[in-house]
Design a protein around this nucleic acid. Structure first.
Lengths: 200, 200, 200, 200
DNA sequence: GATGAATGAGTATTCATTCAT
DNA sequence: CATGAATGAATACTCATTCAT
């Protein structure tokens, strides 16, 4: 079992190293050598665990996608009252904010080259957004059925809008130093999404 | 002036060729040779008009950024009533929708590798978003001063949220075949932004 | 002795696997991994029986060389009449034909890269040809002393000529589908070598 | 035209360099860098004239094949008497001997790895031998029709036999230092082929 | 201005061999 | 004896950029 542990160690070390290296230099500028050096293993070892350079990148991306999707999935789980729903939505927004804050490397990497690599990655990204929107659309349908949300807008369209506002705001919040220093970011966002911008 | 025209022709042909080639193959996979061949000029000619391969890419990106920013700027121009404001906002949304629809190549290219190239491009992208958000924040402030919009949310934060929802929705609408077929896309979006999602 | 048998089994299995793998993919394209996998042993095991990849190849080549040389040696053994000599020569030719037919893998491998590997192999090949020619030259000298063959040609030169005609004909016969379908191949060859091509 | 000359120069220099380098180190051991260094051009220049490393090797092989085939073709040209035929055969043998002597590099290279590279080269080699045999078979048929040669042996079989004896003898003569020092090599060979080995 | 031949730096991947278990 | 995870040297090929014509 020692071997198994060592094996997992190597794989994990490569993944961590790759996350850091990719995040700093970008996919293209980062060499396999950079990654193995950062992981403290020999060059050839990389290919024992990943078929090719893109493979490790896909895996990192996928793990980010799952973090985000899981946050979305958690919202509707075991919810059956308006009050519980609203709390869950608020918690979901906070969880997402924390996720962006706590995984800077992964976030940076995901938004740095979530596109432009190859057809396969582009498909992964498209699928991620679709799936995420479907999850959010389900959340919205629950809100509608609870009598909380309006039913005259297409749930998928609204879902994409929510995904977009969350990602752009959290992204800017994380990486743009000039972003307004709001402490209750996710609260304002939920307010905006719920009440809209019109004067009451 | 014939020379000037020829010169401009070459430059323009290179830009058009680059837009197409980059859009199809991506920045890294596209070679200078691809571009010059598509433009029908010799390889060396490229370097008479652009200092290096990234330069022509920056210029294309910049032109996209300006298209978008101009659409945002047009909203508040010469507006002084609630009614005019609302019409302009609606027009702005439509203009943006058309812009995404009519410039597929440019949009694809911009979102395909708006990141992950180099530090300079990343700065360009960050600046674009900041400037765009400032423009939208100005629009919002006008709406507030006209007594139309609430004043308890940070305008920049709301601006980023609007940018995010627009870009994600229009992007998906353009490139995801499974996007819900809504004809009044930009109307629903403005509705959502103005009234929010809560049941009236 | 069980261990000895097992040991021999592994070694033999490696040799057989190598013969097949080399014959199909060629020396360079064949990997040690291919061979050990085909033999059903672990990679490290290879190096318990062979010092390096070329070693197993040398051994296969050597075994082919010995098969051929033995066929040549058999001709002159215990021969003391013209009639016996002629019969033996004919038998030798047939034995060689069978040898090429029954060891396609080995033949293919030997002629596929009997050269171009390294200095040592080239020396092996040169030595093989020299030794084979010496054996055949001895046969010829016996024929001369029996009063059957002319004595005005250099025996070594004639020996090389015989080696060449045999190898080229048998090789083509084995691997070129367009080779004329002659059933008495080795008889015609001996005829040609003995009587020459001139019209009687 | 200066450019054209320079271009040809580079190409020719690469071919000459490749012949030497391949001949010394073998195809696999020789690197593209070795060749370009020997030719005095930059690495990338190689790929302006040859699509890949094997391409230049194929071209060298082909040129050798043509030298040999041409020697065979010359024999039967404009011959219509027994005397002329015999002279031409003798000349052909000498021409071949000279060819092997004067193109050591090419010969060495051709026989060093005329096999074992890839499917395409193997096909080239097979085709070369078939074509060469066909040429020699034609020569033999002419000898038969002139009443000089026997007609009871398959011409293609005899042709392959001749090819084999020539190549093996000339090869050994060139590269084996222990080869018997015969001055009239090609004369003895023709004698052997014509009269055979039997005592008159 | 325009050309395109020449340059040479840069990198993913393979695979023979070792050695700790 | 046997294993197979780990090693790291080695190499063809691409392509942005230059510069002589």
């Amino acid at each position: 079992m020692g071997a198994k542990v060592a094996r997992d160690n190597r794989r994990t070390r490569l993944l961590n190293a790759a996350r850091e290296v990719f995040s700093q230099k970008g996919f293209h500028a980062a060499t396999v050598d950079d990654i193995t050096k950062a992981a403290g293993v020999a060059r050839g070892t990389f290919y024992l665990y990943f078929a090719e350079k893109p493979a490790i990148f896909y895996e990192l991306m996928q793990s980010f996608f799952e973090l985000v999707t899981d946050a979305g999935l958690a919202i509707s789980q075991d919810v059956d009252t308006k009050e519980a729903y609203f709390i869950r939505v608020q918690e979901g927004a906070r969880r997402l904010a924390h996720l962006f804050r706590d995984n800077r490397d992964l976030v940076r990497l995901a938004y740095r080259e979530s596109m432009g690599m190859d057809e396969r990655l582009e498909r992964m990204v498209r699928n991620f957004y679709r799936r995420l929107a479907e999850v959010e659309a389900q959340n919205i349908r629950l809100g509608v059925s609870l009598g909380l949300l309006r039913d005259d807008l297409d749930p998928m369209l609204v879902a994409y809008a929510h995904v977009g506002m969350m990602e752009r705001v959290f992204l800017q919040w994380q990486f743009d130093r000039s972003f307004p220093p709001v402490s209750d970011l996710e609260i304002q966002l939920v307010q905006l999404a719920y009440f809209g911008l019109k004067k009451q």
